[in-house]
Design a protein around this nucleic acid. Structure first.
Lengths: 207, 207
DNA sequence: TTGACGTTCTAACGGTCGTTAGGTAGGTTC
DNA sequence: GAACCTACCTAACGACCGTTAGAACGTCAA
């Protein structure tokens, strides 16, 4: 007894049948992986949240690893898309607002586009090595975009010459990504938070 | 057949018998928790690394949770001790070197005093709620010491007035703690790394 | 009305998990 | 040398894990 509502005819092509169940599974799995970790999340628990039995998940995914891989890949895609938008909208702005736009975009990926990026940053480290290896290229590409951005700003004199661009990037990533442990997107204030991070990254704490 | 070497008489009091096994277990468990996470580490695997059978671990610990709690508590203690030393040695230095000393101390806790602090910062988030709750006071106390430090520096004019001390602290924690994902203490360079983080935190990236 | 298809359920598989009860070998103490 | 303690092992418990084969059910086309 599939509880699927007819949804007023299928949209463009072959859609909204198992696809909605699939994305529902992905959403809830990402939330659980984010909260309890990959090993700490059982498929029976996930199935219960989604409203089916554990075995039924295998109609949509061939293994737990594939489920994780899909989520982690989507997580980086969201980051790339956010970077794209910032680049498109503020690519030729002043250095500080340009950096601010990219910081805002990264935080947007973490909090405003589903749980995938947040799940990625907290789950990647303990993911099975085969899963991790498959993600390395896309991750490296994202890091490279940031490195290029910062190097450009350094070569044009906006970033201080004695700044180690790699350390600066990793520190910034650490600051932004670790906020998933305490920042509450429900309470809002993402713009203000992004401004504070940008200010801290750009000017530092000293008077 | 206990493989315990006589160790030339017991030292001061009742020592070096099961105590060395206990600390051996703690060390290896912290390393495993750090790498694979709490749920991802089985007691059978831990026992194998230590050189005993899984059941034997229960002679030293009453449960896996207690093992984790002990490790996480030790992790904060190490942070506090590092903060103490920095405060004692550079408490009356100039603001920037004072902050630098505390940053160096926190990184020392992460990399130079056993795997406990590193295990703490990566494992706490997914630890069982009962375990987490027991650690909150000591964690809060450590955070409060940093908040007090930064507030003092702000009230004396060393930290800019428009800096949100809480965001600055959390960003700094994120930058330092996330380095466990890529910094290799074997390769050394902790002093240089601490300087780079301090420079980034204090002056920012802008020219 | 029938048959095919899509989606989920039932029921179980072998394996691993944390944990425990009871045994055992060596060291120390009298 | 007998009793005892310490530190570990053996063997198993029930629970849960990811995963699979096959059955059941609703929907839709013919």
């Amino acid at each position: 007894m599939p509880l699927v509502v007819p949804t007023a005819a299928s949209d463009t092509a072959s859609d909204t049948a198992a696809d909605s169940a699939r994305s529902r599974i992905l959403d809830e799995a990402a939330i659980l992986f984010l909260r309890r970790g990959y090993e700490g999340t059982s498929l029976r628990h996930l199935a219960e949240v989604v409203g089916m039995k554990a075995g039924s998940l295998y109609y949509h995914f061939s293994s737990k690893d594939e489920l994780l891989t899909t989520i982690l890949e989507r997580g980086i895609e969201v980051m790339h898309e956010a970077f794209d938008r910032a680049e498109h909208e503020h690519g030729d702005a002043d250095p500080s607002v340009r950096v601010g736009a990219h910081i805002r975009a990264h935080l947007s990926a973490l909090y405003e586009n589903g749980p995938y990026t947040a799940a990625h940053v907290v789950t990647f480290r303990t993911a099975p090595e085969t899963v991790r290896a498959a993600l390395v290229p896309t991750r490296d590409a994202y890091e490279a975009r940031w490195t290029t951005l910062l190097r450009d700003l350094q070569s044009t004199g906006s970033v201080a010459t004695d700044v180690d661009v790699n350390v600066a990037r990793l520190a910034l990533f650490g600051a932004m990504n670790s906020s998933v442990e305490w920042f509450d997107p429900e309470r809002g204030g993402l713009d203000r938070f992004a401004d504070a991070i940008t200010r801290q990254f750009w000017h530092g704490a000293s008077a």
